[in-house]
Amino acid sequence: MSDTIQSGSATTMSLSGDLIPPRPAPAVLDRPLTGARVLGIGLIGLWLLLAIGLVSMVITGWDEEKFVRYGPRYLHGLWTTISLVGISVVLGAVIGLPLAFARMSKNRIIAAFAYAYVYIFRGTPLLAQLFLIYYGLGMFRPQLESVDLWWFFREAWYCGLFSMTINTAAYQAEILRGAIESIPKGQHEGAASLGLSKRVAFRKIILPQAMIVALRPYGNEIILLIKGSAVVSIVTVYDLMGETRYAFSRTFDYQTYLWAAIFYLAMVEALRHLWAYIERRLTRHLKR
């Protein structure tokens, strides 16, 4: 193919008989020291300096006694955070799925109710919701005792879990709704034309595609929840942040916060990479 074109062009434009042979790429000259490069070096240097400062702070301020006293507490706090987030994500999904359907419902009243729920819980800060549940529901102690729910709302841990669950349910419902509605109508019609019932079509055709769309926002939501879970420390739950505040109030050692930062960053980064892996794995049939 290329031969014919070459010979053709050689005959019509007969100024030069043969093509210039391919040449090697020009040698890379020394890249000039541009402003961007200087800035880049400077900023990387700044980060390195900060990292060195952090490490040296840890080394010089190393205190065996503090480590022995607060190390296990940190691990316990880490476990509290992870379990809070894990449980609330699962429970949030359990509430969020019906909520997503309610949001898409043709029944005006149900749809309006779901919309109001989502709007309220996405429009107010988690901290305010937590206060409302932890302090606000404390007012209804006699009523709660009469229905035997007081043990639940008395514990800060349960209150934190509850507020995180209902908060994430609202977000998850929106993610699911968006994902389900993003599936083209033709998929529904295709399933119907194959004679599949609505239920089977949803389970076998719509949901698998919707889950792929929802995967990335879901990961973001879990990350947001990990970060948001720090607020439960304000109502005396000893999660990672709570233990950090405890350690700081005892030692006035700034390192306590840096350790918390390292733990949180490790958690979020691990989740992010795990999610990237899952996404690559699940969408490998879509790659071309």
Binding site: L39, L43, I44, I223, M241, A261, L265, V268, E269
Partner: peptide, 27 residues
Amino acid sequence: EDRLLRIAAGIYTTIFRGMPELLTLFI
């Protein structure tokens, strides 16, 4: 275009998107 600049900016977003807002505030 500069790789170092990209890395430096990437570190910034990674750190501050990964830390809880509350912790950033305290720090």
